[in-house]
Design a protein around this nucleic acid. Structure first.
Lengths: 194, 194
DNA sequence: TTTTTAAAATAATCACCGTTATGCCAAAAA
DNA sequence: TTTTTGGCATAACGGTGATTATTTTAAAAA
């Protein structure tokens, strides 16, 4: 159970110092242990970072799971739910920053790429599932394509919001995401009521 | 003029090894010089990396500049032009990978963040300009909002394509981007001709 | 041609940080 | 109580790579 708390500590260090600025000592200190404990539980720094990424994925997917019981019946609530995944508050901002920090590292690291792949797979599946609630008789292909589009929207807006937080308050994030998602989903629904 | 070639060398090293795996020696070797030359022209590693990022920005904006003379008159050609900015070929893939590699680092680095901000500023301005060609009487506000949405689309699809290149051939990239952009731009145009 | 200055190579240094080794302490087993 | 085991702290080690210093080479000026 210590592993979890060390991984969480790593997340907050990465959040504050970036991946490159993350030293094992600081992770240990943030977890209220010493480097001895860290190396006791992990095979090395890489393993610690990997665990941190996995922890972020876990949290995000868990949050998705909680939303599974209220499938949206109309476009507006769908968009509102989708926007909740943007970096609009402290907690999600932290996860976004860490998630984004690993993108660059994942480019040259098969192991991390695999984690990303798994995450997106689950995310796509979730969005496609929710889309089917919006339009019951949808081809799998159409649902998946639209899910990709929804996720691209969130990633695109999220990245921008993380890189320019002072210019991207939650309102602007929602506005931009809405501008993309509403027309997309109207098209998806088929019925365009002005 | 050596600075340029060292920066370019840095780009290709980052492309191959990722930011963390980039050693100054390798950059020097790729530029056919030694570390002595590198440190002669730059104040240190940070400066070299910063120059690499600037070089990527330069190339991208230059490419944008070339497209400035053929403003699209309809949605289809606009989308086609936009999709040309996705990582659909070797060259643009390299630039995307490097660009993306710096996102994580920029989180904790004001200097790099400033570069990103400048780039997006120019990019937004360009897209908004092109949008005005599509719909002459557009409010500045509407054009900027739509430009943000277009850029978010490209970033969102681009990220995915970089992280999962084997699953995101150019065709899928275009498909996803089109699914988002066409409805968005029809809405933007105002006139929806089915 | 000599002198001078700049460009870049080569070689040495130095700091940083991950890793490894050792030792201690507490809790469970004997 | 003694013994033992495992969880962790402390501290020393060592590699890696950036930085700095020195030297060589080449080009330009005198």
């Amino acid at each position: 159970m210590q592993q979890r708390s060390i991984a969480s500590a790593a997340i907050s260090v990465i959040h504050g110092a970036g991946l490159e600025g993350t030293r094992l000592r600081d992770v240990a200190r943030a977890a209220h242990v010493t480097t001895g404990a860290v190396t006791h539980y992990f095979d090395g720094k890489e393993a610690v970072l990997e665990a941190a990424l996995e922890e972020v994925v876990r949290r995000t997917l868990q949050r998705l799971g909680r939303g599974r019981h209220k499938p949206p019946k109309d476009v507006e609530t769908f968009v509102a739910q989708a926007c909740a995944h943007l970096p609009v508050d402290e907690a999600s901002q932290m996860e976004w920053r860490v998630w984004l920090a690993f993108w660059g590292k994942a480019i040259a690291d098969d192991r991390l790429r695999a984690i990303h792949r798994r995450y997106y797979e689950a995310f796509v599946e979730h969005v496609a599932h929710v889309l089917r609630a919006l339009k019951p008789n949808t081809s799998s292909r159409e649902a998946l394509l639209t899910a990709d589009a929804v996720i691209a929207t969130l990633d695109g807006v999220g990245v921008r919001a993380i890189l320019e937080p002072e210019h991207w308050p939650s309102k602007r994030q929602r506005q931009t995401a809405t501008a993309l998602l509403v027309p997309l989903l109207r098209e998806f629904e088929g019925a365009k009521k002005v």
